Simulated assay, not measured.
Amino acid sequence: MQTTSTNIGERLCNKSIRDISWLLNIPRSTVSGIITKWKQLGTTATQPPSGRPRHMTERGQRILKRTVRRSHQLSAESIAKDLQTWCGLQINTTTVHRELHGTGFHG
Rank of each mutant, 00 (worst) to 15 (best):
L24G: 02
S29I: 11
T4W: 05
T95F: 00
Q2M: 14
K81R: 11
Q61D: 15
I79N: 04
K39M: 07
T36D: 03
Q2N: 14
T85C: 04
I26Q: 11
R28C: 14
S78A: 04
S29M: 10
C87R: 10
Q73K: 08
P53Y: 02
D19K: 12
R69M: 03
E99G: 04
S71G: 01
S71H: 07
Q84Y: 13
Q47M: 12
R11Q: 06
H55G: 10
P49N: 00
T3G: 01
S78N: 11
G60W: 04
T93P: 03
T93R: 08
L74Q: 14
T95K: 00
Q2I: 14
R62P: 00
P48F: 00
I8R: 09
L41I: 07
R54A: 12
Q2Y: 07
H97Y: 15
R69P: 00
R62C: 08
I35R: 13
R54T: 08
H72Y: 10
K65P: 02
R69V: 00
I17C: 02
T94W: 01
H72G: 12
Q84V: 07
C87V: 06
I63T: 13
T30Y: 10
T4C: 10
K15F: 10
S71M: 01
L24M: 03
S78E: 07
L12R: 13
L41M: 13
R98Q: 09
I35L: 15
A80K: 09
M56W: 07
G102E: 09
S16V: 00
L89G: 01
G9F: 02
V68Q: 02
T57W: 01
E77W: 08
P53R: 05
L64C: 02
G104S: 07
S5T: 12
V68N: 02
S32L: 10
R28N: 15
T95P: 04
P53A: 08
R52Q: 15
W22Y: 12
T3D: 04
P48D: 04
S29G: 09
I20S: 03
L24Q: 07
N25P: 00
N92F: 06
S29E: 08
T3C: 00
T85Y: 04
H55E: 15
T57N: 03
K37E: 08
E10D: 12
P49E: 00
N25H: 13
R11V: 01
G60R: 05
R69D: 05
S32E: 12
N7D: 08
Q61A: 14
H106Q: 05
S21W: 11
V31K: 06
G104I: 03
L89A: 02
T46L: 14
I17L: 06
I8A: 08
H55A: 14
P48V: 05
T67A: 13
T85Q: 14
P48K: 04
